[in-house]
């Protein structure tokens, strides 16, 4: 029996990666949920928009690296991130101007907007593959570890070690800052409040003199910023590959739906719920249980519920359960 080592193994293999991944999902889900709350459609292009923003940050990182510019132990990508955010925002504003605005003014059924977002997804995906190609890109530089497992073990003398990668720490810190700023914006500023009002009751917002075009524009700006940040953090942590970003759409939407579509608080909770469930269900628990089991009773098989190839299935299953039992999500989202 050695609960401390079990806890260390759990932290190293489940909690830290889970919280980092959860932060990435939460930021993605926030973008999706804001668009759903204000523009009232599920934006299928969001995953590819994340890839689009990340692509520019990667290109910028390469350029800075070739100039010899770096950010010390932090990844150079953080230096380029603002540039990536601006480009992503401009791209989304252009997409709105050229595609979505037309349908919005016609007051079409939401499904038509979803379909238009399908077209935008196609174009975005094509652009990304055309410019940077479909392959994997790794752009994490700087110091790789803040805490190294081997050093941790050497210093503390425990059997299990806890490692913290710079990308993971960066993800968690940046995500917390972004969420804090976003909630401050939504709850404390005039523009943020007008967005919530518009999301709550569009007609009454118009009667109160809130300018819908401005609300929509700010929404795209926030969504673009969130998408670029989420994409870059994910890419630093796990590497960039356009197709992976497309596939992220499922856990992101699962997170937003679990938390209640249209509810920002729910999107964050949903992101962590999905990520930690994924980690819990696809982690081989033998190592942790071995520390807890009495001498001689250590498990012989992996104690893994599902292979990690099925991580998408986990988020899907959770989403389905929520849709069956509580379609408005854990935090109440928009009416269905």
């Amino acid at each position: 029996m050695d609960p401390l080592n079990a806890l260390l193994a759990l932290t190293n293999f489940v909690l830290i990666p889970g919280i980092a991944y959860g932060s990435q999902l939460a930021l993605g889900a926030l973008g999706v949920t804001l668009i759903y709350g204000i523009l009232r459609f599920a934006n299928i292009a969001h995953g590819d928009v994340m890839a689009f923003g990340t692509m520019w940050v990667i290109l910028g990182t390469w350029l800075l690296q070739s100039w010899g510019v770096s950010l010390g132990f932090l990844p150079t990508a953080l230096l380029v991130l603002p540039f990536g955010i601006v480009i992503t925002i401009l791209y989304l504003l252009a997409a709105d101007r050229l595609v979505f605005r037309f349908y919005r003014k016609q007051r079409v059924r939401p499904v038509t907007l979803v379909m238009a977002s399908l077209g935008v997804m196609f174009v975005t995906n094509g652009l990304v593959r055309l410019i940077i190609g479909p392959g994997s890109q790794y752009f994490e530089d700087g110091e790789r570890f803040i805490i190294n497992v081997r050093e941790f073990v050497a210093v503390t003398g425990f059997e299990e070690g806890v490692g913290l990668r710079t990308a993971q720490a960066t993800t968690i810190i940046v995500a917390l800052i972004v969420m804090a700023v976003l909630f401050w914006f939504l709850n404390r500023t005039r523009t943020g409040k007008s967005m919530r009002a518009y999301s709550d009751n569009e007609d009454l917002a118009l009667l109160s003199g809130i300018n819908p075009d401005r609300v929509v524009m700010v929404t795209w700006i926030l969504a673009g910023g969130l998408a670029a940040i989420a994409g870059v953090l994910y890419g630093l942590d796990k590497g960039f590959r356009p197709f992976t970003y497309f596939q992220m759409l499922l856990p992101i939407f699962a997170a937003a739906i679990v938390g209640g579509l249209g509810n920002p608080m729910g999107a964050i909770a949903g992101g962590y719920i999905i990520a930690l469930s994924e980690m819990t269900i696809t982690y081989a628990w033998r190592r942790v249980v071995a520390h807890l089991a009495p001498e001689g009773w250590e498990p012989t098989n992996l104690l893994q519920v599902l292979s990690s190839d099925y991580n998408l299935a986990v988020s899907f299953a959770i989403m389905v359960l929520v849709l069956i039992f509580r379609p408005t999500g854990i935090f109440k989202g928009k009416t269905i």
């Binding site: 599920a42 939401p110 939407f253 998408l312 379609p327």
Partner: peptide
Amino acid sequence: LRSDYLAIATLGISEI
């Protein structure tokens, strides 16, 4: 449910 949910659900099941 709302039409958006069908889109997401079908997208998910096909990946799975």
